[in-house]
Design a protein around this nucleic acid. Sequence first.
DNA 1: AGAATAAAAGCACTTTAATACTTTTATTCA
DNA 2: TGAATAAAAGTATTAAAGTGCTTTTATTCT
Lengths: 143, 143
Amino acid sequence: MLSYTCKTAVKAVIYLASKYESGNNAGIKEISEYINASEHTVGKILQTLVKHNVINSVKGPSGGFFISKEQRKQTIINIVESIDGKQVFKECGLGLSKCSSTHPCPIHNDYKKARDIIEKLFGSKTIIDLCKPVNNGLTYLMG
Amino acid sequence: MLSYTCKTAVKAVIYLASKYESGNNAGIKEISEYINASEHTVGKILQTLVKHNVINSVKGPSGGFFISKEQRKQTIINIVESIDGKQVFKECGLGLSKCSSTHPCPIHNDYKKARDIIEKLFGSKTIIDLCKPVNNGLTYLMG
DNA sequence: AGAATAAAAGCACTTTAATACTTTTATTCA
DNA sequence: TGAATAAAAGTATTAAAGTGCTTTTATTCT
């Protein structure tokens, strides 16, 4: 469903948000170590997210990435759309470019149901929602 | 969710099955033209499906691929598992290797619901089910 | 102002998926 | 039996995704 890069993006943002309370910025190194991903990859991803106003960054000493209170209220669909694009939840289950309710592929109706659930999931869960279980130690971002 | 190759595989099998009534085999060229995919790619995919006993083939003149009455009763999950592997419907929404109900990722519960619907869809729809709308002209396999 | 820090940006490399090409094997038909 | 046909199988190429490295720019602190 999501690209590997996009999954990494979500994990990185959740880490960043779960660190929010501290008031400190997080550097690329710190983030990539925590979510067990390549430093360069994380750097690239976070740059893209800054461009899309999902997170913020500051250069220089004591710089790094951070997420504002307002930004934490975003749903994670913003992350997904920034990395994989807005069409992710519109794609046909069989890869047909012109699959729709009026011109459906053989699995259109059933596939759409599941796809809509995933879209709704990403469109309703906020970043805050997802970092709660991480802060509580109930879920993990690595492994 | 499914790889491009896997989507092509499903389309190829549906075409093959929708041709079943004619009693004739279908050649690679014919199939690839109908589903608008590369001849070589279709050849490779169908070879794999023959190995997994999803379809059959005969070499030589008037040879080609065909699907038996019994094979048409299979659900399309057999196609998916032959091409993309059995783990497709088990994967974590955030790409964690050890995500489960006892060790969940932050979106585990919701994501699993949708994933299970898709698994159920592919595990319940038979090849026959899917070629009916094609034969009726209600759905298409190209475009 | 200068040194140090850390992200931004651009370019290059690697890996994997997908596609293309070539040779081999099996079957049919004359 | 030999020619033609069509899939099987193996190899090579291409394209895309992901990763790595280097240079530039912005910021902070002394």
